[in-house]
């Protein structure tokens, strides 16, 4: 028991005491309010509200509407952070090589047969969660992470070798991610680029028509609300998250002989 441990214990217990007191005395606002806060209430009111056409996003799911419409720029940067972290992973492991022919072992035949049945179902469920993100609980990120479970399951049960043989390589996944990000950026610029040549008012990241801008993403498909760009963003976010996290999972399970060339690459850069 040295001085450092005592200081740590004291400061942590002070943190717990101070936060608990503040919470108990309702210093952070009423504990479990009965009414919505005004900001949250206005989001709930306007998310699907065809009677207030200049503020609505025609999305039944309010959380998705906030994520991709009202605070769309935040989410764009969040996607870029995910992109950057995987690029950083690539920088740390630069110079790796993908070697096939190291032998497939994997788990038993029973688990392999079960995985063959389950994996496509998981991917389909992920896609459904993503493209219904504006109607039901879900969204692009949630759907993508569900679908990544299938890829991780295949890596664990069949080994990395199986993915290589099926044509899933890290460079292809990287390409898919870049295409997904490009699609998101193009979607956010699409209305502005349509409006600019014909001198019509339009905004970047615009979804529905505004007071001074008649351009609008498609709001309804037959009789189902489509929520315009929210549907497209969810679809592309699904692609980005699925390929990005599968890429990360593959990088984390690279075999030792595939990493032998890392050291030489590091020396070259020094």
């Amino acid at each position: 028991m040295n001085r450092k441990d005592i200081a740590l214990a004291l400061s942590l217990s002070l943190l717990v005491l101070a936060l608990s007191l503040t919470i108990s005395l309702e210093g952070l606002g009423p504990i479990v309010p009965r009414e919505l806060r005004p900001l949250g209430a206005s989001f709930v009111q306007n998310s699907y509200n065809p009677w207030n056409a200049s503020l609505t996003s025609l999305s039944l799911n309010v959380v998705t509407a906030i994520v991709w419409d009202y605070r769309g720029l935040d989410t764009l940067y969040e996607t870029l952070v995910l992109f950057a972290s995987i690029a950083a992973t690539l920088v740390v492991l630069r110079g790796y090589s993908e070697l096939s022919g190291l032998g497939i072992k994997g788990l038993s035949d029973v688990s392999k047969s079960v995985t063959v049945v389950i994996a496509p179902l998981i991917v389909v469920y992920g896609i459904a969660t993503a493209i219904h993100g504006h109607l039901t609980p879900g969204g692009g990120f949630q759907g993508g992470t569900i679908a990544v479970v299938a890829a991780t399951l295949i890596i664990a049960v069949f080994s990395l070798e199986y993915l290589y043989r099926r044509g899933v390589s890290t460079s292809r996944l990287m390409l898919l991610r870049i295409l997904g990000l490009l699609a998101i950026i193009l979607t956010s610029l699409s209305l502005a680029s349509i409006g600019m040549p014909s001198n019509v008012n339009a905004y970047i990241l615009q979804n529905m028509a505004k007071d001074d801008s008649a351009l609008s993403m498609p709001g309804v498909l037959f009789d189902t609300p489509l929520a315009g760009s929210i549907f497209l963003y969810n679809l592309f976010e699904f692609i980005i998250v699925f390929s990005g996290l599968t890429f990360a999972a593959m990088m984390l399970v690279l075999r030792e002989s595939e990493l032998e060339s890392i050291k030489e690459a590091a020396e070259v850069y020094e």
Binding site: L36, R37, L39, G40, F43, V44, S47, V62, V63, I66, V67, R71, D74, T75, E78, T79, V81, L82, A84, S85, I86, A88, T89, V92, L93, G139, F141, T145, L245, A248, M251, L252
Partner: peptide, 24 residues
């Protein structure tokens, strides 16, 4: 309230991004 849920969705994604890099 939908606003904390939307903010936390962002926080979770950024948390995953950091976790991947830290794990590597």
């Amino acid at each position: 309230d939908p606003l904390p849920q939307a903010m936390i969705l962002t926080a979770i994604v950024i948390g995953i991004a950091c976790s991947i890099f830290l794990l590597t």
